[in-house]
Amino acid sequence: MSVKIKHYPGEEVETKDFREGKVLFESFRPKAKYAWSAGIAISRFLEELKNGRIIATTCSKCGRIMVPPRIYCEKCFKPTDGWTYVKDTGVINTFSVSFIAADASRLKEPIVVAIINLDGASEGMGIVHRIEEYGDWREIKIGMRVKAVWKPPEERTGAITDIKYFKLVKE
């Protein structure tokens, strides 16, 4: 990209060259498996999801009600000092309508995903989740109100997916 450089190295190949064996390769699927400890804060959060409630931690210094909960306030750098429930309703902070899957293939039905600022948490704090029961996706707007739709209690496992999705609700 400099006038002083006359040649830019790199030999381009096509995807079909791999299929047709013109380019040799070795394939391998890694066996990488983990079991992450959820820890103190998120364990409690997951326990409460099982009960159909969303719990946050609080910091007495800056007064924030934080979700997802954590045992430290990252602003004040001190341990958080309380737990409090927040509502399972909130406002769409931003959303997207995804037409592709994680491997970039086309989805049959789009997925709507949103950041939801939860009622009762400090301003702007929220979680990421899916939106369903929305009708036409073109009608979804930032600022709309939503409410969690929970799995029935017997199906909950203590996972973020105990909330099936959020649905739009009328003011």
Binding site: F28, K31, S37
Partner: peptide
């Protein structure tokens, strides 16, 4: 956090020249 890794040796092996 080695105890979170279920397949540590597989990961080490994944560090070898492919």
């Amino acid at each position: 956090k080695a105890s979170d890794i279920l397949t540590y040796m597989d990961i080490v092996q994944f560090g070898l020249d492919p």
